[in-house]
């Protein structure tokens, strides 16, 4: 009787909480643990997994070729982040200082491109940047250049693609933090004799730094993994950590090595998030919503 009653009392809890918990457990927790396990296994000659404990995969990660790729990937992610901050900040600032109607329109305009698949949009860039592409044609027609510029399949093209795909992830958190800024503080600063530039560096920038941090995390981390951007705009000349992992699981069929690479990427991510929370960032600010 007592037991039955207890069950009846906890039924609503069970019904609401179990599905999501079980789903996340089976499809996030267990797979990630499994990836960790594979990373210590070895590749069988046929491309399968042989479960014999080894650290060999992690050893391979330190090879010079790979180190070069990590460096390149981190550099691309870094430039993408910095450029995104510089071009997004004034835009977010302008947006936050617009009228309510204009804000809503600008917000929608930032989100609408998401409704076309990112591959299509990157393909648009390919059309623009190609040797016989739109931009080269325009420049040649205007007699600014004589020979077509080699823009596509270069590292800057990859950075451009990354900035392009990830820009909203920088704009939205920046906007949220600038919008929260109390205007009275700026007035107080100017009242106390601060020039516009001073009040920007002493008031606005420090107070909106949470937005900058959140945006940076949301741009930097994906930029390490977005292999399709380098595939499309880098044309195989630029390799990211993402491409490396993808190749192990795809063409080379070396899952253990790919798993080890993934574990390293997870660790890098966790360190970055840790730093982010250390400087006062909130995990909740990292969601899209």
């Amino acid at each position: 009787m007592k037991l039955k009653q207890r069950f009846k009392k906890s039924l609503p809890k069970l019904v609401t909480v179990s599905p999501v918990s079980i789903w996340l457990l089976i499809l996030i927790a267990i797979p990630l643990v499994y990836v960790l396990v594979i990373s210590f296994a070895s590749r069988s000659p046929s491309g399968g997994i042989e479960f014999a404990f080894t650290l060999e995969n992690y050893g391979k990660l330190a090879s010079a070729d790979y180190l070069k790729i990590y460096g390149q990937s981190i550099l691309i992610a870094f430039f993408t982040t910095v450029i995104s901050i510089f071009i997004s900040y004034p835009f977010a600032y302008h947006m936050a200082n617009s009228s309510k109607t204009k804000r809503t329109i600008l917000m929608l305009l930032v989100i609408v491109p998401f409704w076309t698949n990112s591959l299509i949009r990157l393909y648009g860039w390919k059309t623009i940047l190609g040797t016989e592409g739109v931009l080269n044609n325009l420049l040649m027609d205007a007699h600014i250049i004589k020979e077509p510029l080699n823009m596509l399949f270069t590292t800057p093209a990859v950075v451009l693609g990354m900035c392009y795909t990830l820009l909203p992830f920088m704009i939205l958190p920046l906007y949220a933090s600038i919008e929260k800024l109390d205007r009275a503080l700026l007035e107080a600063a100017s009242d106390l004799g601060a020039k516009r530039i001073h009040s920007f560096f002493h008031v606005t920038l420090p107070l909106t730094s949470p937005g900058i941090f959140a945006g940076s995390i949301m741009v930097f981390i994906p930029a390490l993994g977005y292999f399709f951007v380098s595939d499309l705009l880098g044309g195989g000349n630029t390799m990211l950590i993402g491409n490396l992992i993808k190749n192990q699981f795809n063409t080379s069929q070396n899952w253990p090595l790919g798993a080890a690479l993934s574990i390293v990427l997870i660790i890098v991510t966790l360190i970055l998030v840790k730093i982010y929370t250390k400087v006062g960032g909130k995990i909740d600010d990292l969601g899209v919503a």
Binding site: L24, I217, K246
Partner: peptide, 30 residues
Amino acid sequence: YKFKGKGVVDALMYIPVVIPEIILGIALLS
């Protein structure tokens, strides 16, 4: 509701948001 392991569920929830998508991709594939 509060329950045992709620912290774990909350943490699992943040994983797809924070880690690179490729990791979830290969984990699911595995």
